[in-house]
């Protein structure tokens, strides 16, 4: 499987994302500068964390209208897995590919620590290797991770089983403790916690690796010989 890690000016988790996909998962991956991307060559797209365009205007806003975005939309339409972490999640929200928006954390501070998450939906192509309601632990590192959506959108998210992860102890004020959501079709996952920073037991935690393994499993199943 071949992943593209999109690098925007100001991305800073791109190396970690690349490391998780290539060195740890063991698949092919490229770090692709946003202006030079040709996403047709790739089977999956990873939007990394960081501060694209310095978070100017709103987090993810300027990246969400940059040149590569039409190609990301194309990849989503083609059903390719697209994972956005932290700033990558903010970009997906600003693109309108995921519903809702991000606000400043409730306590107005940047937070950087591990948080316990509950796997709400293990039926997605990103979460198949987790148990339903399993508690996992992943690092968070954000100042604007307070997920907001109106009641109607929240009902829709629940009805379509789009809530993938919730916080056990909501650190940032997110609506309904939401930490990660998918699109209706299930091939886009946006999440504030960083699975790519938790992929090696040697470094203390590998709870995030199963997201990458789940993507690969899904890809292998849908690209098996004869399909």
């Amino acid at each position: 499987m071949k992943f593209a890690v999109i690098v925007f000016p100001g991305s800073n988790c791109d190396e970690d994302m690349y490391h998780a996909a290539s060195e740890v998962l063991g698949e092919e991956a490229d770090m692709v500068w946003f202006e030079e991307a040709d996403l047709k060559k790739y089977d999956g797209v990873l939007l990394p964390g960081g501060f694209s365009y310095g978070d100017y205007l709103r987090s993810g806003a300027i990246a969400s209208v940059s040149g590569v975005i039409e190609q990301v939309k194309e990849a989503i339409k083609d059903g390719k897995p697209v994972l956005g972490v932290c700033n990558g999640f903010q970009v997906l929200l600003e693109m309108g590919e995921l519903p809702g928006a991000m606000l400043r954390n409730k306590n107005l501070t940047f937070m950087c620590h591990e948080e316990e998450l509950i796997v709400k939906n293990n039926g997605t192509m990103f979460t198949a290797f987790y148990d339903e309601k399993e508690t996992i632990s992943l690092p968070i590192a954000h100042g604007e991770g307070n997920y907001y959506c109106d009641n109607q959108t929240l009902e829709e998210l629940k009805r379509n089983n789009q809530i993938a992860f919730t916080y056990k102890n909501n650190p940032n004020g997110s609506t309904a403790d939401i930490a990660g959501i998918t699109n209706k079709e299930g091939n886009v996952l946006g999440m504030m916690p960083h699975p790519e920073r938790a992929v090696e037991k040697l470094l203390g935690n590998d709870d995030g690796l199963r997201i990458f393994e789940s993507i690969l499993k899904h890809w292998r199943e849908t690209h098996a010989v004869g399909n």
């Binding site: 205007l57 209208v65 519903p99 928006a101 606000l103 907001y148 959506c149």
Partner: peptide, 9 residues
């Protein structure tokens, strides 16, 4: 609508 404001919030 497209960039300067986010109509969700």
């Amino acid at each position: 609508k497209r960039l300067l404001a986010n109509p969700v919030i």
